[in-house]
Amino acid sequence: MEQALAIEIRVHVAALALYALAAGLVLFGTTMSKPRLTKAGHILAQIGLAIHTMALGLRWYGAGHGPYLTRYEVLSSNAWVTMAFVQALRLRTRGSEGLAVFVYPAVLLLLGLSIYTGPEVKMLPLTFRGIWLVLHVAFYFVAFAAAILSLGYGVLHLTRGTRFAGRLTGLPDAAALDRESYRFAGLTFAFWGIGMLTGAIWAYYSWGRFWGWDPVETWSLVTWFVYGIYLHARRFYGIKGRKAALLLVFGFVLAVISLFFTSFLTTSLHSEYFH
């Protein structure tokens, strides 16, 4: 097990290097209209994803629990789910190629931060053992990946008309970017909500209460409400385009605060998580 952990960090660094190359090639290829470079970047990202999968597998084996406790594990898992998501999307949906310009650097940042925080292993606290916790965390991973994709489309929409966007090739038109950001915000809302509810079930079985206005719970609810307000604003009040994208950026900032900052509040029951 210790051997697995010793190898795992090196495999993680290898995945990081491949993601860095992939992000560089895709950015360069897209802005300089070099489709072969862009394609090479995507291939490197896929190889990086395979290696990243191995790294997480080794971590799981070495730590004796899933990669969802320490900052290292959580950020790496978030990076993995986001990369897997965008690769699946590229296979399935036309016009999603351009999203890599935003998502690959985001994944690089997540994995870089993960490795920067250090691979210290922590034992799983007693209350963290159970299927509801695994589901709770897994749904939040998917929700956060969807939020990154949604933000990516939103930011690309916001940059439309700027000199930077003018150099990007292979991006859908502004209306399609706006629509896709809406679609993924819907997915974020769905999975964030389910993540919160599975968390409530976990809390009920662990502590005998399903809701306690814990800071992490409350911020999570706030984030969910803001995504709910965004969806209502789009569907019923016709808000779209730039205004909608800005609201989405605000929702994403709340999501980041909720997932990565509120657990540092000492009064939180989640203080074992992400430390």
């Binding site: 706030v222 409400f225 709910g228 604003a233």
Partner: peptide, 22 residues
């Protein structure tokens, strides 16, 4: 929507300011 925003704002404040009721 206004109520959601209200709960969100005061929920955020309640998460930041320690609460005697908790």
């Amino acid at each position: 929507i206004a109520l959601m925003a209200f709960v969100a704002v005061f929920g955020a404040l309640g998460a930041w300011i320690p609460q005697t009721s908790l």
